[in-house]
Simulated scan of single mutants.
Amino acid sequence: MEEKKHINPKSGQLLISEPFLQDENFVRSVVLLCECNENGSFGLVLNKLSILRIKDLLDDLEFLDMDVFVGGPVEQNTLHFIYWGDAVIEGSVELTKDLYWGGNFEEFIMKYKAGQINLDHFRFFIGYSGWSSGQLEEELAEKTWIICEDIDAEAIFSSAPDDLWRVALRNMGGDFQVLANYPIDPRLN
């Protein structure tokens, strides 16, 4: 009997769904892991655009006409954000070089109104992706996800949502470049 290799996911990594994953919440998804500990893992799907805008979600924010992404199927009544560049918001968590998660939302609004925020460097999410203790490790052992440790923060924000899955795989190089071109339904090829 073959022993399973133990895989330790970490904050700041990307989870890229394998090409055959059929879960409608995660087909061709790229998930940014924001927190991993003994209690489980928390992440945000980076490439699933919702039909909502920030101004539609929060009262008094009609000036924020930005896209909102679906961070995952869990608690879709919650709002999260990430940004890249310099740490500009108090309470932000640095996930990897120049990529931050969360922080003081009131400070974000204040700095935006003062012209100190570049909205192109921010992305907002409703809901999140969550795994209980050991669940993500099991999915990784089953090869449901490909881990990308070398994140290109700028590519996350500059790539079209529909292209991010392919871009992330191509950036990993090697055999992953071949996967990037794999059709969603190979029978249609």
Score class of each variant (00 low, 15 high):
L15P: 02
S29L: 05
L57C: 11
K55T: 03
R170V: 14
D65C: 09
L136N: 04
E62M: 10
G102A: 00
D65Y: 07
C34V: 01
V27S: 12
V93H: 03
E2D: 11
P183N: 07
R53L: 11
E149F: 10
Y128V: 09
A180H: 01
G127R: 02
E142Q: 09
F176K: 10
S158N: 11
L136R: 06
D56H: 14
E35A: 15
A168C: 02
N171Y: 07
L33A: 10
D120T: 08
A180C: 03
P73V: 15
C36D: 14
E35C: 13
W84R: 06
I146L: 06
M66W: 08
D86N: 01
F125G: 02
L49C: 00
L33S: 08
D120A: 14
R187Y: 13
L58M: 15
V45F: 00
E106T: 15
P161E: 05
D152A: 03
V167S: 04
G115R: 11
I89A: 05
S11H: 05
V93C: 00
F42D: 08
Y128E: 07
P19S: 01
N77V: 03
G12K: 05
F26Q: 05
S29D: 01
Y182Q: 08
I117L: 11
E75R: 08
Q76I: 04
D163P: 00
D59W: 13
G85I: 03
N39H: 13
R53S: 11
G173I: 15
I54N: 03
R170L: 14
N118Y: 14
L188R: 11
N47L: 02
F20K: 12
G134Y: 03
L49S: 03
I117E: 09
G91R: 08
L169C: 03
L14R: 07
I16V: 07
G72S: 07
G102P: 10
L14E: 06
I146K: 01
D162I: 08
G12Y: 04
E138K: 07
G71M: 04
N37I: 04
D60P: 01
Y112Q: 08
G12Q: 04
L61Q: 09
Q22F: 14
S11N: 07
E94Q: 07
F69N: 09
K113P: 00
K111Q: 15
N8V: 11
F105N: 11
E137C: 07
P73F: 15
E90Y: 07
V70G: 00
L15F: 11
G174P: 10
D98S: 03
V167M: 06
V70Y: 00
D59Q: 15
M172P: 01
D185N: 14
E90Q: 14
R53M: 11
